[in-house]
Design a protein around this nucleic acid. Structure first.
Lengths: 231, 231
DNA sequence: CAGTGGTCTAGACCACACA
DNA sequence: GTGTGGTCTAGACCACTGC
């Protein structure tokens, strides 16, 4: 403890005390100035340590009320969501992309509600495949809101996947994402080269920009694909 | 811009410039002191803004080399992993837990490698069910390393689920987690009250404390369960 | 009202990576 | 060497909230 106390020292020390039971779940932690005195450092240093603990879901902080050890540790795992091309490359495989279908059409029934579209809106539907070492990796079906991104209507998506095109167009956007298990449809299974009905993971991703829904995608992964979360 | 510039102002401004293309993917951003001058704030303020952008995966920072807009935006989504009891309660349903089976045994073949156990180690195997409003929610099969947590050998797990018991025992631990789609086994499907072979999501969670493997769990969710990530 | 965390400042020194 | 980010400090003021 005689070593110079940086924010990581403080964070680790508090973590250790929590894991050893010295600070029990639900317990009130010392206030920042007290910890600063104990560790002989500035309050800002303690503040950063505690802020990170709060971000990690370990403690809960409230003004006036102080910091408490989270009684129900909601673990915040991280899910990294790279471009499929990068994801495949990171596995050391050769990536290949193939456009299957592209059409401008009206949104189907459920889509208008999901993407908050008019029934009169036009959307671009793109179906495509991603391969890793020539093995089917992912079948993608995507709808793009042409009211929000009219330029998409003229992009061919022959060479560049809609996802890559979209991130280059608007690199930042809100996203929500969910995963569900389902039986592979006739269509998806034929592209993934598996038997229809095989259990697969379907990822649904919806992207928003400034409150407007940009795109909705269903990604059907090849059986055996793992979604991996860290932390 | 005459408003007092706090770190959020700076962060949002840089975000806006990235999304508007003023700072293109791969481009070098101004150095901290320059941004501090532009926004009339301290460098520490800029630093916090930029640090958060880096944590969010938006930019990439290197000493001496400066900060660059990430060319391949790896979106970091967050996955909140609460206790099943809390997860069910948050959905407004009544939670119920039922212990099914509990035995002390030797690790099966794959488990020794996965948990880095001796073949002579003893593990506690617990099978249990979680219900939401009396509907099957999750079938759990778990192995606990008794060399690491010998007290688990005397816990009954009749009332408290192994997960809750473990987090109260050691609230902090490293975890890794993955999700895969599979056909429900005869056993899992009978507890989940679905037809065998139904596609389900299986979550595999492994927990480590100080380098030692504490527990490994396979959580088989009821069909239709969604893993939801935010960001 | 008073105590807690939230943030900003101005300055300083250090670590690292590239020239 | 030199320029960049990484961090710490001591002090200050503010915002929220429970008493």
């Amino acid at each position: 403890m005689t070593a110079p106390a940086n924010f990581r020292t403080v964070k680790d020390a508090v973590l250790r005390r929590i894991s050893e039971g010295q600070y029990a779940p639900g317990a009130l932690l010392p206030i920042e100035t007290e910890l600063a005195r104990e560790f002989s450092c500035a309050r800002a240093t303690v503040n950063r340590a505690m802020r990170e603990l709060a971000e990690d879901g370990i403690i809960d902080r409230k003004r006036r009320a102080g910091s408490r050890v989270n009684a129900h540790p909601i673990r915040n795992a991280r899910l990294s969501v790279p471009l499929v091309r990068i994801e495949v490359a990171e596995k050391g495989a050769v990536y290949r992309y193939r456009m299957i279908e592209r059409e401008i059409c009206r949104p189907y029934d459920g889509l208008t509600a999901r993407m908050a579209l008019d029934a009169k809106s036009k959307v671009l539907r793109v179906a495509c495949m991603h391969y890793a070492d020539n093995a089917p990796y992912l079948y993608e079906e995507r709808w793009i809101n042409l009211d929000a991104i009219p330029e998409a209507g003229t992009a061919s998506f022959d060479v560049t996947s809609p996802n890559e095109w979209l991130v280059s167009k608007s690199p930042l956007s809100d996203m929500n994402m969910s995963f569900v298990a389902e039986a592979a449809s006739e269509r998806a299974s034929s592209f993934l080269e598996v038997e229809a009905g095989t259990p697969v993971i379907a990822a649904e991703r919806q992207t928003w920009l400034a409150g407007a829904s940009i795109t909705f995608a269903r990604l059907i992964y090849h059986p055996g694909y793992r979604v991996i979360a860290h932390h």
